[in-house]
């Protein structure tokens, strides 16, 4: 195998795995922004909260980060419902989502980040697990388990949520509230309650996304901001409200970033998402699979 071709292929494969992980990070925003039209820019901060929960349970009690995420799911779900309730009462009901609603989430982002800094400091934190370190070797191809496990967990979560949204009653109601809240009201379902459930779900995904984030890389409180551009680039590129579009976009961005990092240096990778976002907004704002 030629050296540079091997490098290219390995970059593509790790980009694919990374992209799968990006899907887990973005799915919360795909729900809140894509379906509920709530621009939760604080989402990455809550993903980091999930990372630190996993970190605490791992260092203090030696619990596996993925197990911690599952245990923390209900708490994140409830937190999400509480945040939505405040958002609904303060902004959605007053029709003041744009200026003050956005500022509200920006404030939450900042408060969450600074609180994490105050508690944990700005050092990088990491977790221990059996699948962090070893790699699968398939010929010339190297598959680090550190990336493979998050990829699989992420795909499982996306498929699970997709099934929930298309098969269950509540899931269909969430799809309905995204399309026509008035019609839902006429069917005697309360759109606010449905949105509260959906927003709780979007927060719950942050518990899992946070756990797999800290498996992939050591975290410190401010890296959440790097993910804002990435997440929204993925959601916009994928087309709002479309999970399959989101996954395609996430994998595309993962591959492009991985190639950029391999051939131009990792410090350029954060600029990729912005380029993608800007080009999408300028050329095709409805995204690849947008309605």
């Amino acid at each position: 195998m030629d050296g540079s071709l091997g490098l290219l292929l390995n970059a593509v494969v790790s980009g694919l795995l990374l992209g799968g992980f990006y899907a887990a990070v973005s799915i919360g925003v795909a729900i809140s922004f894509g379906m509920l039209d709530i621009v939760n820019i604080a989402h990455p901060a809550f993903i980091l909260l999930g990372s630190y929960v996993a970190y605490l349970a791992n260092t203090l009690l030696g619990i596996d980060p993925l197990l911690t995420a599952v245990i923390a799911l209900p708490a994140f779900y409830l937190l999400g419902m509480a945040v939505y309730q405040v958002y609904y009462l303060s902004f959605e009901r007053r029709q003041d989502q744009s200026l003050r609603g956005l500022s509200f989430f920006f404030g939450l982002l900042f408060i969450a980040e600074v609180t994490l800094v105050l508690i944990f400091g700005v050092d990088y934190r990491l977790v221990q697990a059996p699948y962090i370190g070893p790699s699968l070797h398939l010929g010339w191809l190297e598959l680090p388990l550190r990336l493979l496990v998050p990829f699989l967990v992420s795909m499982l979560m996306v498929v699970g949520l997709q099934l929930f949204l298309t098969r269950s009653f509540t899931g269909r109601a969430i799809e309905a509230v995204a399309q026509d809240p008035l019609a839902l009201r006429l069917m005697a379902a309360d759109p606010t309650r449905i949105k509260r459930v959906a927003f709780g779900l979007s927060f719950a995904t942050a518990a899992i996304a946070g756990a797999i984030l800290i498996i992939i890389q050591p975290v410190e409180p401010s890296i959440g901001r790097e993910y804002i551009g990435r997440i929204f680039a993925i959601c916009v590129l994928g087309g709002l409200g479309s999970f399959s579009g989101m996954v395609i976009a996430a994998v595309t961005l993962g591959v492009v970033e991985s190639l950029t990092a391999t051939f131009f240096g990792p410090s350029w990778a954060p600029a990729v998402s912005f380029g993608v976002l800007l080009v999408t907004l300028a050329v095709r704002p409805s995204g690849i699979l947008g309605r």
């Binding site: 621009v39 804002i228 551009g229 929204f232 916009v236 954060p270 998402s273 912005f274 800007l278 300028a282």
Partner: peptide
């Protein structure tokens, strides 16, 4: 010019990403 023709939130998101990209440029 690129983002203001869309809904306001897209402009907001683009500015958020702009901060990251300018920082990347300066860092490099």
């Amino acid at each position: 010019y690129l983002t203001l023709r869309l809904r306001g939130v897209f402009f907001s998101i683009a500015t958020l990403a702009l901060a990251v990209v300018v920082q990347t440029l300066i860092t490099n």
